[in-house]
């Protein structure tokens, strides 16, 4: 027995010291929405610099909580914090990338992008008022589709999520009944449906459950070949989610460094704008000056070299003017 213990101790000690050469490690956690692009950037950045940027997707609520508790080096959230809140928790905030949330449905014989919905039907489905895909209002919008009778299963995010924040922000903005009964936020009390953890969890449940509808970040829908729907935007046009329609929405946004870039991009007015777009934000603890410099270095690198990777994953890189504003913001706060 003693020898086993000694052996275990030896292995453990060897393991704990092999990391002596370890480079800088940066721990971040938060939004699942930008997880694919952050992990891709971190992977490439690690190859070039050796810096390990460990990003864990635990949800935007988690990103805010953990950076407020200072248990991570940076937080990430799709749900921007108001300047007052940032002031109170001594945080800094800047956007990193823009993307879109899309409704995804699992309906037999319907291909991605075929189904058309507007904010009213979407709202009623998620309120549980429209119970079947063959409902009058859905059929009217989709004369060409053969829609099944089966009951709709709503899938929502069970964790505190910026994707939910963007989605419910959109519903609350366009649908008064939603605003009254449910409201907007990272975790709301959904009237019907089942909850999946993370974009992954929702994508997974939708994939597995016939006649279901959920909402995920577009990259997840695309990678999983889920049937995303078209949506009618503020200008009254049906738009297909994708790079162009997200970019269109992004261009309408006026991010203000004085407000720590606090801004929603939902229900954008542009003709071709996707109505459920949003920026995703990075949160830094003001007092962690050294760590912040390393994190800023990473995002500076990503802003310079990461645009193609982001586009590949159907995120919209920030416009050049916004990147400049962010760099000025970093300087103003002594991070660069």
């Amino acid at each position: 027995m003693k020898t086993i213990m000694k052996l275990a101790l030896a292995i453990a000690l060897v393991l704990s010291f092999t990391n002596a050469e370890a480079a800088v490690t940066l721990n971040g956690a938060g939004a699942t929405f930008p997880y694919p692009v952050y992990s891709a950037w971190a992977f490439d950045y690690n190859k070039i610099t050796g810096v390990q940027l460990n990003y864990q997707s635990i949800g935007s609520g988690g990103g805010q909580r953990q950076i407020t508790e200072r248990t991570v080096d940076f937080g990430a959230s799709d749900d921007p914090l108001k300047p007052e809140q940032l002031q109170k928790d001594k945080l800094l905030q800047f956007p990193a990338v823009i993307g879109g949330v899309v409704p995804v449905a699992n309906v037999e014989n319907v291909q991605p992008g075929q189904m058309k919905l507007d904010s009213d039907t979407l709202c009623k489905i998620f309120l549980g008022e429209i119970k079947s895909w063959s409902d009058e209002s859905i059929r009217k919008m989709n004369p060409g589709l053969k829609l099944p009778q089966g009951e709709i299963t709503v899938v929502y995010r069970s964790d505190g999520s910026g994707t939910t924040a963007i989605f419910t922000h959109y519903l609350a903005e366009t649908c008064p009944a939603w605003k009254d009964k449910v409201g907007a936020g990272k975790a709301v009390k959904f009237p019907v449906g089942i909850g999946g953890k993370g974009n992954e969890g929702v994508a997974n449940y939708v994939k597995r459950t016939p006649n279901s509808i959920g909402y995920v970040e577009f990259a997840y829908a695309k990678q999983n070949k889920l049937d995303y729907t078209q949506l009618k935007n503020k200008a009254g046009n049906f738009v297909v989610p994708g790079f162009e329609s997200f970019e269109d929405a992004a261009e309408s946004g006026d991010f203000d460094p004085k407000k720590d870039f606090y801004l929603w991009l939902t229900n954008a007015p542009g003709k071709g704008s996707w109505p459920i777009a949003g920026a995703t934000f990075i949160l830094l603890a003001k007092e962690k000056a050294d760590v912040n410099k390393n994190i800023v270095k990473f995002f500076d690198w990503a802003f310079k070299n990461g645009d193609n990777k982001a586009k590949e994953l159907t995120y919209v890189p920030l416009p050049k003017s916004l990147k400049d504003k962010i760099r000025a913001y970093w300087k103003a706060n002594g991070l660069q």
């Binding site: 635990i58 935007s60 609520g61 988690g62 909580r65 069970s158 505190g160 990272k186 975790a187 953890k197």
Partner: peptide, 8 residues
């Protein structure tokens, strides 16, 4: 398990 790390 779902909400602990995420509560804001």
């Amino acid at each position: 398990a779902n909400e602990f790390a995420e509560a804001d």
